[in-house]
Amino acid sequence: MTTHTFTARRGRKAGPPRATNPRQFLRHLTLIALGVVMFYPLAWMLGASLRDDGAIADPGVWPGDGFTVDGYVEGWRGVSGVAFGRFMLNSFLVAALCVVANLIACSLAAYAFARVDFRLRRLWFALMIGTLMLPHHVILIPQYMMFRELGWIDTYLPFVVPKLLATDAFFVFLLVQFFRAIPRELDDAARLDGCGHLGIFFRVILPLAKPALATTAIFTFIYSWNDFFTPLIYLTDPDLYTVPLALRSFIDTTSSSAFGALFAMSVVSLLPVLGVFIAFQRLLVEGIATTGLRG
């Protein structure tokens, strides 16, 4: 760890050398067995989405006799005259904005905590961790009042502005942990090259922390995509609704529920998140291990 004479490595196969074949086989077997168990519930959901509403209590995966695509048709029609596709677009917009906001704000804050010596840093750090610890239900009402005073009801500002101001402490902390794993020698080298903090941030830390940034992007996207309470409280105009709001409204405990539509749209709404995951996961593997260190 004390030297920085690592040679650059390219190629995908990082980590320790590949294991021998029987081992490899065993490993695949384990993974597949586990994968089947893990995946069953999702396969069931897919089956249920192609099944008649009445046959919903069928625990099997195969839709069988009750096969129908009504769920997709009905679900896609949406709620209150707004098509489900609109909710998908809304969700995508919100989630994308949140990703950008979180990447910028959280990495800035994380750099400060991880790499800069400034007064009261530890106090701020403790406070930052502290903000994670209060259950959000107790600040729901005060926060609603504040955002309402600001005229933010029926806008996406309550979703994005807090993220722009790095209030997602989870990700600040995540990035701090990853930034700190990057050897300081690299900073020193950059400093010798005449870089200031901004230079180190952009040229050393960010490139080397790609997996962490990708993780932040993926998680932020998924959490925003799945977020239910924020849109429930802050959005009134159905044109602005996001996917989870629409999904919940398919089920009503006091009257009939549209299970087919629920499952069908649950499946459909998984696709964009899955897409984002697959798009970003390439970056997950590009750590120090693969890109190498320019010593």
Partner: peptide, 10 residues
Amino acid sequence: LAGLRQIPAE
């Protein structure tokens, strides 16, 4: 996984 990827293969 992201963490493991940050461990230098060397």
